[in-house]
Design a protein around this nucleic acid. Structure first.
Lengths: 145, 145
DNA sequence: ATTGAAACCTTCCAGTA
DNA sequence: TACTGGAAGGTTTCAAT
């Protein structure tokens, strides 16, 4: 594990709130020079703490208003790699988490409507050696920035 | 809903892969001028499709190696706002999803270790009118970029 | 850590199809 | 209405102190 001090944590929080904040904007807030801030952010990227820059999207505005988590259980002989690969194949799948215990996987999906959800779940059930699924329909989400 | 054409989708995909991609870098890829690309990205932000820019963080490198989802059920009289507020209070909570049916909420947490997880779950159980929890320990995660 | 300079990007405005 | 092109201002980046 790399050494992360308080200034690094503040820089991370600022960038999590706005990934486009400029070095010259952050420098006075942490009391360092622009170059020093750049060196720290570069180090956070090189050490793998920051894995990338991205955007947050309102999927509802893109016609995918329905969000759900699908819990999946597999036969005991199904390897993890296959679990992830088969689930991840569907473009509606946003994330796959493998789980210790039951269920074996938790899959986050985003779809247009209920009919589309049905179709994606059917696809998940068909692939691999699925023994059962349980779907958790999301009513609302609050994610930490 | 705003009109999103193919070029907009390509810009969104590029920015999701790298939120720092510059206008001048994207312009030739979509066959437009820099100013035209800026106008489109501005419009995607103004219309609320792009809700923000952020960074992706490897939390394990920050000393929070353990990830889990906690399913929570509440008494029938608990309002949604309180569900979210009480869960969201803990800084270990990354996201709160309210669910239709059972459970009532799915809470994503990141913690240092199992002892820390125990402590956070205890905190979740104490607040509000929780009638039960079930914890899904994450072994691995794959998120779409 | 700071300074200074070069290169690059963003931003805006007027012009054009 | 949407795109192009150029010019101005700011930011990043690198080298030297």
């Amino acid at each position: 594990m790399t050494e992360i001090d308080d200034v690094d944590h503040r820089l991370l929080r600022m960038l999590r709130e706005d990934g486009r904040r400029t070095f010259s904007e952050m420098a006075p807030e942490v009391g360092l020079s622009v170059a020093a801030v750049k060196r720290r952010v570069d180090r956070l990227r090189d050490s793998g703490v920051i894995t990338g820059f991205t955007i947050q999207i309102d999927h509802a505005k893109l016609g995918r208003a329905v969000e759900a988590f699908v819990e999946i259980t597999y036969t005991g002989s199904t390897p993890v790699g296959e679990i992830v690969r088969t689930a991840y194949r569907a473009p509606e799948v946003q994330a796959v988490h493998t789980i210790a215990g039951a269920p074996d996987a938790l899959v986050q999906v985003r779809v247009r409507d209920i009919a589309h959800l049905q179709q994606v779940i059917d696809g998940l059930r068909r692939t691999g050696h699925v023994t059962g699924t349980k779907t958790l329909m999301v009513l609302g989400s609050w994610t930490r920035n």
